[in-house]
Design a protein around this nucleic acid. Structure first.
Lengths: 339, 339
DNA sequence: GCGCATTACTAATACGCATTAGCGATCCGG
DNA sequence: CCGGATCGCTAATGCGTATTAGTAATGCGC
């Protein structure tokens, strides 16, 4: 023990603790301690520190699928970039839990989620975590943050992207370019991510003083089949000059829109504008870059960590929505006949 | 505390400890405890476990740079796939320690690595971890495994890819295709990964009964500039029929080789064969797929975890080298004039 | 019915640090 | 020269677990 070497005892703790506590230490003693520490090569045992501090500086990251899936496409990587940075900045280390693995013993029984309690709090990715277990944690006062909108679970803290504002902005941009007749192509999905976009779209129309009737939204379970070149031509003949697609897992809405436009012989930025409410699938990422918005995944991860840190610290902070960044892209231009 | 809920106290420890100690527990009590544990969602505090000189089923993963870099190219992702799988299979959870973060305070003092002692053992990625700190951990008996060859540090356990055998195999394949005159293009780097490849290359030549003089190795600090089409032509005129490039961070050796071959008007698999000792940079990954070998990164990660688990268990196991998989590819074919 | 073994548990302790109350010394105003 | 305040440090306690020593209860042989 360093205390024996130096002259003191748990004064060491005060010196090394660097707390801004009210306890005063003379410079002389401080140096004596530091010298002894150096001489002995003393290093504080983190286990003891964390035990004494009743706080182990660990944040859990729980994903039902593996955190590092073999299929990189479908990974949480972009979120984790932000999660790691923010956690590091706040002095937290991350514990990775995966639904498939969790439980040491192997069996991912109903106990699976309990293991996260060894951390100070836990971040949940993906919507596969069983709701009742999640709520149990929350009810027990364990700090939990869900990455992705989770309105339906009372009391569960979450952070999500602000699809409504982002979609509204896209429509506003199109309107500013002179488009007075815009159609939204969406898939047949009632996920919040999907309905939010429609909300934002309609809100954007309204704010621009445009017609937002049901005809403005084309909803299809299989857009790649149903969104044909003829249909597109029909819209164009009716005076539609811009088309907006929602982002989905498969990117089908956007793909269908692009294909239809090509098949119909439409010169994209000139004859009609296209926009994507989100990010394109990798194979359609460039050439041309879709006009639309990007979900700032790293920032989402960071925001989630901030929220979680606040909860761990006993604060009541809320920071649910993160703004998306508008992506100018190259698929939208002035409406035909617009200055 | 679970003890209050159940009926007992630190009997809990005995039940959960699953130690094959001589202390007997009746099946009835054991069940009572387990039920209480389940009801409360009790999880042993990892810090307390460690402090009491026991395991907590946590393995650390320490990377000096962030584990999830913004620049995905240079990421540890492929390794972590294997690390996560193997750790899960063995009932360990992973703790991510990021070097950059260390200390929240910002200054990554000499204590940087110390946090990892909270876990049962720790895996180190990248060669930026300070050697003295690493050796300190080793000296203290803390289980440490370095992912990537680390011969120079006495006593440090590591796992690495067997570049020697893999490179030898590539040469053997080329020899089997009738190539009698092969040149290795390497960069001016003395990293083990680089010298190992040269070793394997020369060994392969030797075993094939080919000349392995210094002329067989072309070493350049800037191959993209120095490996010109003329130089390539020169070699071809001297009877060289196959070229082998080492893999580097930038992929410059391979890139230079491909460019030179193209500029010289060489029809790749027919006029001359090319092979790459490793994986190509992403932009050269396909069309044609380079003949060579793949570093089995996930397997490397898994092997590292196995080794670490062995160390944690107090065994002396060694499993340093992992075999690489030969990649047939499309850039190598029979030597001109070979059946 | 008395020692001795065995079984099934519990009380007590150690682990290494953070934190708090408290103690002696010095200082300062009156 | 005295009471109170401030400074600088230390003794003591608690964090939650694993482990060891020890105790009560039961069984068994003679």
């Amino acid at each position: 023990m360093a205390r024996l070497a130096g002259v003191s005892q748990a004064t060491v703790s005060l010196v090394l603790g660097a707390r801004k506590q009210g306890v005063a230490i003379s410079e002389e003693t401080r140096q004596k301690v530091l010298d002894a520490v150096r001489a002995l090569g003393y290093v504080p045992d983190p286990a003891a520190s964390r035990l004494a501090a009743a706080r182990n500086n660990l944040l859990g990251v729980f994903s039902f699928t593996s955190t590092f899936p073999t299929d990189v496409q479908h990974s949480y990587y972009p979120f984790l970039v932000g999660v790691e940075q923010e956690a590091a900045a706040r002095g937290f280390d991350l514990v990775l839990f995966t639904g498939s693995s969790t439980g040491g013993a192997g069996a991912a029984g109903p106990q699976a989620l309990n293991r996260v309690r060894l951390a100070d709090g836990c971040l949940f990715l993906g919507r596969h975590a069983p709701a009742d277990e999640l709520l149990r944690l929350v009810a027990d006062g364990f700090p939990v943050v869900h990455l992705g909108r989770r309105d339906e679970l009372e009391g569960l803290a979450w952070v999500g992207a602000d699809y409504i504002s982002a979609s509204r902005t896209v429509v506003a941009r199109l309107a500013a370019l002179g488009h007075r007749n815009i159609v939204l192509v969406r898939e047949d999905d009632d996920a919040p991510a999907s309905t939010d976009r429609e909300h934002g779209f309609l809100k954007g129309l309204e704010e621009a003083g445009l017609s937002g009737g049901p005809a403005a939204v084309f909803r299809s379970a299989d857009p790649r089949r149903e969104l044909t070149a003829e249909r597109l031509r029909g819209w164009l003949d009716e005076g539609v000059t811009a088309f907006v697609a929602e982002e989905t897992d498969t990117g089908d809405a956007w793909r269908a829109l692009c294909d239809a436009a090509r098949d119909a012989g439409v010169d994209c930025p000139r004859d009609a504008s296209l926009a994507l409410l989100g990010s394109p699938p990798p194979d359609l990422a460039g050439d041309p870059v879709p006009t639309g918005f990007d979900v700032p995944r790293p920032q989402l991860g960071a925001a989630a960590v901030r929220l979680l840190a606040a909860l761990v610290a006993g604060e009541e902070a809320t920071e649910p929505l993160v703004a998306c960044a508008f992506r100018t892209g190259a698929t939208a231009g002035p409406a035909p006949g617009h200055p």
